[in-house]
Amino acid sequence: MVSKIPVIDQCTVSNSLRSEIMVEDLATYLHRNKSLVFPHRHNFYHFLLFTQGGGTHSIDFETFEVAPWQIYFMSPGQIHTWTFDGEMTGFVVNFDKDFFKTFLLRPEHISYFSFFSGSVQDEVFTVKEEQRTAVLNIFARLQQNVQDLDFARVSMLYLFHVLEKQREPVRPKEVSLYNHTLLRNFLQLIELHYATLRLPKAYAELLYITPNHLNALCKEALGLSAGELIRNRVVLEAKRLLVIQNYSVSTIAYELNFSDNSYFTKFFKKSVGMTPDEFRKHMNINKSHHEK
């Protein structure tokens, strides 16, 4: 039996008078939440800067080695766990899903930053040396002025722009603003419809472009075909459902609109290299190991 992976509320982990945002030094946060080493999800946005320490952390089943000046971002719903070693220093920021809702004309604007795309590969990176002093100062000012919500919003947007700008040269290829917008819209449509729309043609129709254009755009910008991006999102949701709670494989297949359990199992094994039941057992063993 696999235990349900809990959803952590902002008020559970935050030591703040405000529920909208929390900014705290990492050592204090970890001491206060020292029992939070089991796999869990958040219902809020979360990002963390390491300035010292070691160990590992995982986001949606991908594990990363902790390194100084590494930063990671998480969106609501992603599965997360950590195992830290030594003295940990840095900063943690948690903010509500609606934190920018009344501040920005388009609150979805933050999803246009690469590290809030929902792709784990974009969510973990190292702050470049020339930006470290500026980034550290922004975190410090945020912590000192967290009760001023407008100041916090402006500071965070500035931080996001600083971090996004430093990442631009390492993107696979530059794409036009139009194609960049198309790609973001495609990824957002996948998030909305992955369980019911599986073919690139369906998404191309929603975007008013040809399937060939969509596929070429995905290949150029991300190195993956449109079909691979759709399948990867379906596989991720299958993994989440397998470990979140004790659903049967047939129930998961039904939830993801597969015609039958056998087809779902073949689809999952082709993508992951093991059957759904084998993946669940593997994750349960890893979880038991971390809890010891």
Rank of each mutant, 00 (worst) to 15 (best):
K165M: 15
R167L: 14
R167A: 09
E168I: 15
P169M: 08
V170P: 06
V170W: 10
R171M: 14
E174R: 15
S176D: 12
S176R: 05
S176K: 06
L177Y: 08
L177A: 12
N179D: 11
N179K: 02
H180C: 09
H180I: 08
T181V: 11
T181D: 13
L182W: 00
L183D: 02
N185C: 15
L187Y: 01
Q188M: 13
L189Y: 06
L189N: 07
L189I: 09
I190M: 04
I190C: 04
E191D: 13
L192Q: 11
L192F: 07
L192M: 10
H193T: 07
Y194C: 00
Y194N: 01
A195Q: 04
T196W: 08
T196K: 06
T196P: 03
T196Q: 09
L197I: 04
P200E: 00
P200W: 05
Y203I: 03
Y203V: 03
Y203S: 02
E205N: 07
E205T: 07
L206V: 00
L207T: 01
Y208E: 13
Y208R: 10
Y208Q: 12
I209W: 03
I209T: 03
P211A: 05
N212H: 12
N212E: 14
N212M: 14
N212P: 09
N212F: 13
H213A: 14
H213L: 15
H213M: 13
L214Q: 01
N215E: 03
N215V: 03
N215S: 00
L217N: 04
C218E: 00
K219N: 12
E220I: 09
E220C: 09
E220S: 09
A221N: 04
G223L: 10
S225N: 08
S225H: 08
A226Q: 02
A226I: 01
A226E: 04
G227N: 05
G227R: 10
G227M: 09
E228D: 09
E228G: 02
L229I: 02
R231V: 08
N232Y: 07
R233N: 06
R233I: 07
R233D: 05
V234S: 00
L236H: 02
